[in-house]
Design a protein around this nucleic acid. Structure first.
Lengths: 234, 234
DNA sequence: ACCTGAACACCGTTCAAGT
DNA sequence: ACCTGAACACCGTTCAAGT
């Protein structure tokens, strides 16, 4: 897939600097919704959200941005298509026991988001749709039910779980795109809190302790526990 | 604050269409970081994220966008300043008992975000800093501790709570900016799920039941319960 | 030190014109 | 039906020039 991307970049560079007859170079790959979506995900993987635009996709595909509107209504629509395409890579461990299965699917969801920097930010602002999104919801819901979670709590719970993981993914990618924000914030906490923020000061080390994996694992455990044991409002 | 905004809009319109001597009109309010931040929040409140840009802020303040860079490093920096300024409006019910106090502060946080459409999306992608952010964290942490939550769980828990509410706020504003996405999605669920997604089909009514307030209230209850009862990994 | 105008390098989207 | 070039109405940011 990276090879294909390289090829198009090179081709477009050639065609602008030294135009050649179509006969002399390989035939241009036909435009399609799938090619547009794939190129968008490639650009995201390469350079994050800053590297994604309709114009850049068009350049890679050796065409003008106006041409994309035959296949895509607007950029929000493209976002939704890209999201669902990425969700097709989520791994479902159907043989695992009921509560673990839910955690591992959410872990896979997180990895898919983190592999394409900026996809989480897109997910946070786009109403997801599409078959792969449905599949994920169905899998999580079935897992909760099989784990013995009452149906109403499970139905509301999947929203909580997905929101949490999506938000965490967005946070992680946003931080990685800026400098060392974590250390910077930790410093701010350490300095200012002594007198004005005693609790933050006191627990400073605990707040910033633990690996990302540990923290997310605990977050999911806490969510699953809360979902299972909290009755719905009347 | 709205009056002030109107005034500036009118002034800039006048100065471009029919320039008058500075002597004939009221003195221009001096540029300042505070004025820039306030104008940014006003623009957000008026027209959401699409209405916010350095150029629009500059127009309202009757100057050029380049002038803003004396007071603000870049737009990300402005986002952080706007966030903390908005957080100053969070209401803390310090007289409430320990666990309720945390919920109501988070409710106030949510309202502050929803009042300025798009602020939640900014929060989801910006590492917050500043005194008001610290104050919110301190208040939540103290509330959890006072409710008897073990210190380590409380320290990790505030992150969960804030992430959930921020993500929910971002989701709600994103949905409100588009059309009737909720109904649209509910339809998709209702149609496709009969055979391929039996659980989603079965629980369709429950999934989309309840008011926003009920759902967020339950989410916070579940989160608080899970945080209080889930031991940290070793 | 602060402000300005103009420029640079981008965006998403539309539209008449071509094939 | 699909593609193209050019335009429209925007962006954030920089920089030399003014005061």
């Amino acid at each position: 897939m990276i090879v294909a991307l390289r090829y198009h970049v090179v081709m477009s560079a050639i065609s602008t600097s030294a135009p050649r007859s179509r006969r002399e170079r390989p035939a241009k790959a036909p435009l399609s919704r799938e090619a547009i979506v794939r190129t968008g995900l490639d650009l995201l993987e390469t350079g994050g959200l800053a590297n994604l635009s309709l114009r850049k996709i068009a350049t890679v595909l050796d065409t003008g941005s106006a041409s994309l509107y035959v296949y895509v209504e607007n950029i929000r629509h493209l976002y939704a298509l890209m999201l669902d395409a990425a969700f097709s890579e989520i791994r479902y461990a159907r043989e695992e026991p009921a509560p673990e299965r839910v955690k591992s699917a959410l872990g896979s969801y997180l990895e898919v988001m983190l592999a394409r920097r900026g996809l989480a930010q897109i997910a946070a602002g786009t109403m997801p749709e599409g078959e792969n999104w449905m599949r994920l919801n169905e899998f999580l819901l079935a897992g909760l039910l099989e784990a013995g979670v009452p149906p109403e709590r499970a139905a509301w719970g999947i929203d909580l779980l997905l929101l949490q993981v999506t938000a965490k993914a967005a946070e992680l990618t946003a931080w990685s795109e800026q400098g060392d924000v974590i250390g910077c914030t930790a410093d701010t906490y350490a300095k200012a809190s002594a007198t004005s923020f005693p609790r933050l000061h006191e627990l400073h080390d605990v707040i910033f302790a633990g690996t990302t994996a540990h923290r997310i694992g605990w977050a999911l455990d806490a969510l699953l526990d809360g979902i299972a044991h909290t009755p719905l409002p009347t």
